[in-house]
Design a protein around this nucleic acid. Structure first.
Length: 856
RNA sequence: GGGCGGUUAGCUCAGUUGGUAGAGCACCGGCUUUACACGCCGGCUGUCACAGGUUCGAGUCCUGUACCGCCCACCA
């Protein structure tokens, strides 16, 4: 392709995305051995959401690394996934098709959704629901792929996967079954964090704190001590302070610190709860904080995580009032039910609470306590942090339920060790991992009482009396996976036995979204699907991701690989920062400050946007700044134009003989070494800054200084030296910039080279020093050029003449070393400043420009 | 309460072993210079958050403080 007359950036994206696809430029060559492969575990974006500029930012970082590794000779394994798991997709499918997932229904292969969603949702089986999801997300996936291609991601688009896809289900289920068989996954009935609106268990990793208004309620519990002791204490009650008085009926004990003198006499004795008259013990535990409230707390089943700890360690009974839907459930007090000194009074009080939500129950019980005189003073309003499910609207409750867990706590040390083996970029992100693992306070709850997602490949026998034998879980055979227990039948049973005495039931739950996302390394590397590919790609090289999901995605992936493979899933983790809006806030949809990416790519060019993204180094939060995109666009334009200049006209073939040419090439060789080291360390932003800086100096100074010679003013040999040096430098700079300005560099490459620049070999210092030849002092001469040119240009500007004006004479004085360096390139320097005479002297730095008589 | 990161020119940010403060943008001024006006040249701009310390010398190392951001916590 010839050098264009008017090179332009417009249309490069369409042109090259089509060409790359047609030529299979980024197709993975699966014949290469593991050592020659660089495998990337790309984060699958959520398809039901929209891609925003934050995605563009971080995915560009990964692409830069991918392109660098590819040019270094690695075969890059770079798939793309779509995350269609989880609540957002579930809701979207429901609304779009007017259906509800009902896991109790069997698969109906003939089902078709109505053209328009009906007001009354149609119940469909889980497999049908998943089919609808796949249908809906096809369009999203197309739009996403288009954007990614337009941005220039060098993904192999023949390798895509969906997190709810058949193969992903199979991998998730198979890994789960293996954990279950080894006892690393287990089912247990236990107090679990619970969202009362979604009516599902949630995991520790999905929590967030929100500041909420609340109030301390000072409540009196009657003591049951011998009179003498009470008299000594002066009171016959204990005052506790609680923000959740509605849980008083669930109170099973009071607790204070063992060293707390105020309560020491009470330890071992009992008190009665207000309103309900239940006798509960006063106990000692080190977790009780004498500084908090009155220093003595009531333990309820369950008000918060501390209650769970106390309940477990003090071996207390359960007295649960909170139901899965967030209301207080029915309780009968007295001899046939819960213990009370005054069952009639207890029942009367409780009946007014039953059926109310926590919030309403609190208001009601405050009324009752005031009336009974057991509330001391007015509630004292406070603001405190309350735990929420990150997607939820009401505070979490803790409810006892039967859930699947994966063991984490007893493997804490090994998991910490894995974190240390992983190479983090930037390295300080490892602290977040350590922090999280050290803070784990329970095993990982992976089951969700939702309908959409990967099912547990598990059934339970139904006993002859119709009860379910949860301890006798029947795990699916690996060869049969994926299965859906709502439709498929366990080995040895017939379909008619579903739900029948002596028969079976399917596990109704689905896996947590992170339980399925955590196996993306196994999904993409074709684990248990294509052993050959797996062997060439696993453990992978790179996990790129954002820092907010270290505790979830990164941690859970490490955990799964540790258990299944006894290794890390990848050797490097590159953590991207967030994109901040100009107010330094994290950009997010909810804040309405998200910019749609395709418009940006079209306005500033994909390379312009890539440039902006590339400037944000690993882990660094970066401001959204169209100014930087404009600069990137200018850089790309400059590349086009200087390439046009370099390649225009006939190439004069000849060796590099001139000192300036040699110096420039050798300095470029040093840059190659430097930039390569940066990129090897995932410091792409630094690499770009250095290359960019050299490039502009090259354009502004070297090209200007050699123009005259290049045009033949000093003969053909001197011109050939410049021509050869220019081309060698251009070739190297295009390759250095190719990972960043993927489209521009590819276009220029195509003007004069064969093949794709993205499959060209990464430049080396050696290839330049061969061209430059032996040249003592040449680098210093090239380095001195910019300062001297600048000073002399200033001399002209000060006299208000153009830089191109021919002048009578220039006198330039400088230090010994500088002048020696400049003398080596005196002819080029003189031509560059268009001086009739150039005098270089050692002395105090000075510049004198003498204009021609006519101009003076 | 714990941890991590940040605080450098009006803005966005570099500043890699401690050695006279940098770039781009913005602003001001100049320039048709046979690659580029999506250009070129030049100029202006800083108690490097604050306070101590180590050192001949600190933006850089140490201690502490303040503020910003993120993550975490057993939040009665």
């Amino acid at each position: 392709m010839p050098v264009p007359d008017k090179p332009a950036l417009e249309g490069l994206e369409e042109k090259w995305t089509a060409r790359w696809e047609a030529e299979g430029t980024y197709r993975f060559d699966r014949s290469r051995p593991r050592a020659e492969v660089y495998a990337i575990d790309t984060p699958p974006p959520t398809v039901s959401g929209a891609l925003h500029v934050g995605h563009v930012f971080s995915y560009t970082h990964t692409d830069i690394v991918a392109r660098f590794q590819r040019m270094r000779g690695k075969e890059v394994f770079y798939p793309m996934g779509w995350d269609d798991n989880g609540l957002p997709t579930e809701r979207r499918v429901q609304n779009y098709f007017g259906v509800r997932c009902d896991p109790s229904l069997p698969y109906d292969p003939a089902f078709t959704p109505p053209d328009k969603p009906d007001k009354h949702a149609i119940s469909v089986s889980r497999p049908n629901f998943i089919e609808l999801c796949a249908r809906l997300t096809v369009e999203d996936e197309k739009a996403f792929e288009h954007l990614w291609r337009y941005l220039g991601l060098s993904v192999d688009w023949s390798m895509t996967y969906a997190t709810i896809g058949k193969r992903a289900q199979r991998v998730s289920q198979m890994l789960f079954v293996r954990l279950a068989r080894r006892g690393l996954a287990y089912k247990l009935e236990a107090p679990t964090l619970w969202d009362v609106d979604f009516k599902t268990a949630v995991a520790q990793a999905e929590l967030e704190d929100r500041e909420q208004p609340g109030a301390y309620h000072r409540i009196h519990f009657k003591t049951m001590l011998p009179r003498a002791v009470s008299q000594e204490m002066g009171v016959d009650y204990v005052a506790i302070e609680t923000t959740r008085p509605e849980l008083i009926p669930a109170c099973v004990a009071l607790v204070a610190h063992p060293d707390d003198e105020r309560y020491r006499p009470l330890f071992g004795s009992h008190v009665t709860t207000p309103l309900f008259g239940a006798r509960v013990p006063v106990l000692a535990h080190a977790l009780a904080d004498p500084e908090k409230g009155s220093g003595i707390a009531m333990i309820c089943t369950f008000g918060d995580i501390t209650d769970v700890t106390w309940w477990r360690e003090l071996k207390l009974p359960v007295r649960a009032v909170m139901q899965p839907n967030g209301t207080l459930g029915p309780v009968s007090w007295g001899t046939s039910g819960w213990e009370s000194d005054d069952a009639v009074r207890a029942q009367q009080a409780y009946d007014q609470l039953a059926g109310l939500s926590a919030k309403k129950a609190q208001a009601k019980i405050v009324e009752l306590l005031k009336a009974s005189g057991e509330l001391h003073g007015e509630p004292k309003p406070i603001t405190h942090a309350v735990k929420f499910y990150e997607k939820g609207d009401r505070p979490l409750e803790i409810i006892t339920s039967r859930q699947w867990f994966i063991k984490t706590i007893e493997h804490r040390e090994q998991l910490l060790e894995r974190g240390r083996q992983l190479q983090w970029h930037p390295d300080y992100m490892q602290a977040r991992y350590e922090n999280w693992v050290n803070g784990l306070n329970g095993d990982w709850c992976i089951s969700r009482q939702r309908f959409f997602g990967v099912a547990f490949p598990v059934w339970y026998p139904v006993r002859a009396d119709g009860t379910v034998d949860y301890a006798g879980a029947i795990l699916a055979e690996e060869a049969t996976l994926p299965i859906d227990p709502s439709t498929d039948v366990p080995p040895g049973y017939a379909a008619e036995q579903r739900g029948q005495p002596g028969g079976f039931v399917g596990d109704p739950d689905v896996m947590d979204t992170w339980a399925t996302s955590s196996v993306t390394p196994q999904i993409v590397t074709m684990w248990e699907h294509d052993a050959d590919v797996f062997e060439r790609t696993f453990p992978m090289d790179l996990r790129p991701q954002a820092h907010d999901i270290i505790r979830t995605w990164l941690f859970s992936s490490v955990l799964r690989a540790h258990f299944e493979h006894g290794s890390l899933p990848w050797s490097h983790a590159a953590i991207s920062g967030f994109v901040l809006d100009p107010d330094r806030k994290k950009m997010s949809k909810s804040k309405g400050n998200v910019v749609t990416p395709l418009g940006l790519l079209q306005e500033y060019g994909s390379d312009g946007v890539r440039y902006w993204a590339a400037r944000g180094g690993p882990g660094v939060d970066t401001a959204f700044d169209v100014g930087q995109m404009k600069i990137g666009r200018k850089l790309a334009m400059k590349v086009l134009n200087v390439s046009k200049f370099t390649l225009a006209g006939d190439h004069l073939d000849g060796p590099v003989t001139e000192t300036l040419d040699r110096g420039m090439l050798l300095n470029l060789a040093a840059l190659v070494t430097d930039a390569t080291t940066e990129l090897e360390q995932y410091e792409y932003a630094r690499a770009l800054a250095k290359v960019e800086s050299f490039f502009w100096d090259f354009c502004d100074n070297y090209v200007e200084a050699t123009k005259s010679r290049r045009y033949g003013d000093f003969g053909p040999a001197a011109a050939a030296s410049a021509s050869t040096a220019l081309r060698a430098a251009l070739s190297v700079m295009l390759r250095l910039l190719a990972p960043f300005l993927a489209f521009t560099c590819e276009d220029v490459w195509s003007w004069w080279q064969r093949g794709s620049v993205h499959r060209a070999s990464w430049p080396t210092a050696a290839e330049l020093s061969v061209v430059a030849g032996d040249a003592a002092g040449a680098r210093e001469a090239h380095t001195a050029l910019a300062a001297a040119l600048g000073a002399i240009r200033k001399g002209k500007t000060d006299q208000k003449v153009s830089v191109g004006t021919e002048v009578e004479a220039v006198a330039y004085a400088g230090g010994d070393d500088e002048i020696r360096a400049l003398r080596a390139i005196e002819r080029d320097l003189k031509a560059a400043v268009r001086a009739g005479a150039l005098r270089l002297t050692v002395g105090e730095p000075s510049v004198a420009v003498t204009l021609k008589p006519a101009e003076a």
